[in-house]
Structures are given as structure tokens and as C-alpha cells.
Nucleic acid binder design. Structure first.
Lengths: 126, 126
DNA sequence: ATAAACCTTAGAGTGGACTTTAAGGCAAGA
DNA sequence: TCTTGCCTTAAAGTCCACTCTAAGGTTTAT
């Protein structure tokens, strides 16, 4: 699968795909004889993984660390698992915070007319 | 309440509080005779609101638009409510996306040993 | 009275994550 | 064969949201 097809299928800029590969947020992508990227299933799995992590708010730097461990092979399985677990907790906290914010926002919208004081507190009535 | 007290109470940098006010992401804060910021309850409500929105992933630019409408008074109530509703939907979508990512990540961690193929696919066995 | 610890502003600097540009190679259709 | 459109890299540029610096005014404690 060429980069532009991947871009369309996954709704992600091809520039971003190249960027992720360049900095090491995904492992090196398979190439064809012309040197063009030719994403196989495994490459696509890494793209999905990176997108998933980014959607969850995980930093590119973290992805780089993770992939770096992955490239070092089996002996890093435990370290990788721990890294994932750390991120899992962070994501979970972020999710809870967002949920709380969403609820507050929802409440505000639902009670808008009642809540709004419309600057009268500061501007005085006129 | 002075800026540093607000900073400590809300766990937010005073630079950020000044920045939000400067760009108009919150309305102008009450000042004392020396020109120092002296946050009253209403000012604090705006700080909470901005923090809540930022936590939900809402952009500073959106906050500026919202506060701009607010400053124009009662005739913008409907427009503001619509803006909030738009953001509510966007936040809701982001939340769902994050939840999905979290679930995938959780699954990956829980099944780590089974899932990991450890680069053998590409590097061959040795 | 004077030093330490606050506060102010304008403007410059930073970090993260892309995104664009420049200069060029490859491939498929007319 | 030529043109259109894809692909490549390295490097520079952009955008967002802060964050810091410089230069100076105020308040508080000794």
C-alpha cells in the first residue's frame, strides 16, 4: 500500500506518516524497488497503534521510546509492558478529567439562561 | 485574591493566567489600587471555566470568541449557547475517541505476551 | 531605610507536532 | 517521448499555547 493510499484510508496526512517514521514513532516502513514506501500489514498495524496512542493524548516522544525498546527485541518485553501501563494510567486520568469537564459544560449549556449573569455584576444595571 | 494565590489554589501558572487575560480568553480581572490583579468570585469563575474548557481540549481561540460574545452583552446569549453546543459535540466526539483508544490500549496491555510478535515477522528467526 | 518578595508590562523565546518547500527521481497514460 | 502525478529527502517554516526575560513599581519584614 502506497503512502497516499494509507493517508486516505486512515485519514492521516502523508506528511505525518513520513514524520512519524523519520523520528522513530513507528518502525521503518517496507520499501519497493524504487525506494517508495509500501506499507504491509505489519506497517499498517504500527500506523494504527500510533494513531490510537496519539488520539489518546500520548506524546510522540513516548512512542519513540516505545519503538526504540521494541527494536531492541524480546528482552525489552517487560519494560515495554510497564511503559504501556504507565501510559494507560495517564490516559485514564486524562479521560476522567475530560469526562468531568464535559459534564460541567453540559450542565452549563442545559441551564444556560439561569446561570448567565451577563456581566451585570461588573457593569451594573442600566 | 492575588495572582499567586490563584495560581496555587487552582494549580495553574500565573503566566498562564496573565496570558489568558491578555489574549481575551477570560474577561479583564479586577485590579487593586496598585494595578495588581485581585481576583473576585466572578473572576475565579471565569478561571474555572477556562480551565475546564482547556481540560476538555477546547482551543484558546474558541475561548476568545466566546468571551468576545459575552462582552457584547445579552443579545449574544443565543450565539453563545450555540457555540457551547458546538463545542459540547466536539468534546463528546473527542471523549468517545479517547475511550476507544483507551480500550484498545488496555486490551493490548492485558494480552501483551500473546500479541507481541517481536519483529520476527520482519527480521526472520535466528 | 533597605532588602526580599511580591507585582506590572511588552516582547522575545520555547517545545511539540506537524507542514511546507525545494529539488529532484520514478511511473503510467496520450 | 512527454506530461501529469506520484514518490523521495533534508531542511526550513508554521502554529499553538504557553513560558521566560528585562526593566521596573509596590509591599512587607527587619
Amino acid at each position: 500500500m502506497k503512502i497516499n493510499e494509507v493517508s486516505k484510508k486512515y485519514h492521516i496526512a502523508s506528511d505525518t506518516l513520513r514524520y512519524w517514521e523519520r523520528v522513530g514513532a513507528i518502525p521503518a516502513v517496507t520499501r519497493d524497488s524504487a525506494g517508495y514506501r509500501n506499507y504491509d500489514n505489519e506497517d499498517l498495524d504500527w500506523v494504527s497503534f500510533a494513531m490510537c496512542m496519539r488520539d489518546a493524548g500520548v506524546s510522540v516522544e513516548y512512542l519513540i521510546d516505545y519503538i526504540s525498546l521494541f527494536k531492541q527485541g524480546k528482552q525489552t518485553v517487560q519494560a515495554r509492558k510497564e511503559l504501556l501501563n504507565d501510559q494507560l494510567e495517564i490516559v485514564s486520568a486524562r479521560l476522567a478529567k475530560m469526562q468531568k469537564s464535559y459534564n460541567k459544560l453540559k450542565y452549563k449549556v442545559d441551564h444556560y439562561e439561569k446561570i448567565d449573569k451577563d456581566y451585570e455584576g461588573k457593569m451594573g444595571k442600566h
